[in-house]
């Protein structure tokens, strides 16, 4: 989920870059030295997992997984997602320099919000952990889509139709992300519960 270069106007780009900078500073501050390899490795796993395409009827969508990154990393989701986006830009030119900030915010801010909202559910019973994880996966995509729409609307009021299309296009992705996050959290709770520190 990202906005390509050249679409947004100056103020929106500056706002995005400032929020991303603030989030990254907080994330790096909270990230202890001993956890840097952990965060870097999870950023790599996030990058690889986002290459997975899952089928939806005749088409396929690629996963975003910012919800689960939020659950695993908390505030460190900001530097982790920034790193992953920088790598995507360098290796495949998905995104670029000026939109790096906005795109980081689009994925990392929902991750941090969902971390605070749904993290408490993860340590409860199997049932509420699954429900919380579904809400986390779906919610982080929804929030991301809303942020994309907001970035477009703040750039130009006439982007209404395009912004609407973006949100609608993300509805199937939301459901799939929710389902996958729920199963993934159930799996991690069984296999390696200490990963949710």
């Amino acid at each position: 989920m990202h906005i390509s270069e050249g679409v947004l106007n100056g103020p929106v780009l500056v706002a995005g870059a400032s929020i991303a900078l603030a989030g990254t500073v907080v994330g790096l501050k909270k990230l202890e030295l001993d956890n840097i390899p952990q965060a870097g490795m999870l950023a790599a796993a996030f990058f690889v997992a986002s290459l997975i395409h899952v089928p939806v009827g005749p088409a396929s969508v690629h996963l975003i997984l910012n919800g689960i990154v939020g659950l695993l990393l908390g505030w460190a989701a900001f530097p982790a997602i920034l790193t992953a986006l920088l790598l995507q830009a360098m290796m495949f030119q998905y995104g670029g320099i000026t939109t790096l900030g906005v795109n980081t915010v689009i994925m990392a801010l929902p991750a941090v919000i969902c971390y605070y909202l749904f993290k408490p559910f993860i340590h409860k019973t199997h049932r509420s952990a699954m429900i919380g994880a579904f809400a986390c996966g779906a919610g982080s995509v929804l929030l991301g889509a809303i942020l994309v729409a907001a970035a477009l609307m703040f750039t130009e009021k006439n982007f209404l139709e395009v912004a609407g299309l973006v949100v609608i296009a993300h509805i199937p992705v939301m459901i799939i992300e929710g389902v996958i996050t729920a199963f993934c959290v159930a799996f991690l709770k069984k296999v390696k519960p200490e990963i949710f520190m």
């Binding site: 490795m41 997992a49 997975i52 996963l63 689960i68 996958i180 729920a182 199963f183 799996f187």
Partner: peptide, 19 residues
Amino acid sequence: YRTYAYLIGILFVRASERA
């Protein structure tokens, strides 16, 4: 979807162990 979720789960587990 469950299979993909487990695939992603094991990727995260192995990443964490490797870290």
